[in-house]
Design a protein around this nucleic acid. Structure first.
Lengths: 201, 201
DNA sequence: TGCCCATCTGGCACCGAGTGCCAAGCAGGC
DNA sequence: GCCTGCTTGGCACTCGGTGCCAGATGGGCA
């Protein structure tokens, strides 16, 4: 059962890769919205119907990683001792997962596309919101709350803000044409948010 | 020109109100996604085509206010002296605009719908992101930056986090069935985000 | 009163995303 | 070689949204 499984699992993964590769190429060439699913399916030599058996939506081709990365973030976060404070723990989890890494090549173009295409941006936010549900329980514990205390806004606020900072960092990163350092931008974002309301910046 | 304008402007606004009223009723009865535009148009006694002349998308019926509220927030924020620190200024602008007000009746059901309907949630976030562009320039000034310094993440991060806090507050508010105080939830959210990483909570 | 113009409206055809259904193909197990 | 289960493709359909055109409406003006 396990050998055979890995057989068509492998072929399935090959199809995934093929679709993704083909689609990404088309997206970067003609833009996301200008590329139809029929076109992707035709180029990948599968039927339109089969495409939807691999990807639920067109956006999932670009944002597929985000869902799994959320799980990864949760697991990583849970591996960090509860004695570590929330912001620090999130920052460390991001570092370990590699959410602060960037390879200027293709990534910049993809990022630009994500920030400029409304439907894509919306979906990416949506996926990030799912991170919230995944990470909040652990942050509650770090705040000394019950893991399922759904009436205290503290943990949700911290996670949500952290994700907002990550998003902003990515945004600025694309604005600078990928020249800035993503991790640094994130740190500066968090710093700005959490700095006391005194003079200077 | 001005008197006549107000004439068909009034009738136009009447149609707006009619559509909104009819649609909202249908949404609350059968859910957002279960209500088709044909149904709304038929109930409002207009053609499907005309509907789209009043609302660009189905979501706009529910979220129409958010766009104009963004403008209002910007204007309000700009009326607050630059000597007021960012977070404080945003908080004050929210208070003045009434973004922290809640009327438990219909509002709770609408809010629940918004948080439970993916497409609606996505669009609402999208609209909130437009707030960011509107509010950031003013916040930059409060930080001593140029109003169009697009390379510093600080202002974007603060605005984005504030909106995240507002969103979280609304979320918890609906979770509590509208019993909690929205302004209080927002304040607690901000407090949690900005509290120093000391031991305990 | 009658004409002119601008605007709003409805209806039609069309597109693209996404779903349900069913029949054909292609495994592997017995 | 047959049965079984999963995958595939194709078809028809729904729904949101757009472009286009023809007709109604109504106000301004001679």
């Amino acid at each position: 059962m396990s050998k055979q499984e890995s057989l068509w699992t492998r072929s399935r993964q090959a199809v995934y890769a093929e679709i993704t590769s083909v689609a990404m190429k088309l997206f970067l060439e003609q833009g996301f919205e200008q590329t139809t699913i029929d076109q992707i399916a035709a180029t990948a030599a599968i039927s339109r119907r089969s495409f939807f058996r691999y990807f639920g939506t067109k956006e999932d081709i670009v944002l597929g990683d985000l869902a799994s990365q959320g799980i990864l973030m949760r697991d990583t976060l849970e591996a960090i001792p509860l004695s570590v404070a929330p912001w620090e723990a999130i920052r460390e989890a991001l570092r370990r997962v590699g959410g602060l890494t960037q390879e200027p090549d293709v990534m910049l173009k993809v990022a630009k596309m994500m920030y400029e295409t409304p439907s894509l941006r919306a979906r990416s936010i949506e996926k990030h919101l799912q991170w919230q549900e995944l990470l909040v329980p652990n942050i509650r514990l770090r705040l000394g709350l019950d893991a399922d205390d759904r009436r205290d806004p503290a943990a949700d606020a911290i996670v949500s803000s952290a994700i907002a900072c990550l998003d902003v960092a990515g945004q600025i990163w694309t604005r600078t044409g990928g020249t800035a350092d993503l991790a640094d931008l994130y740190d500066r974002a968090v710093l700005a948010v959490r700095a006391p309301d005194d003079r200077t910046a």
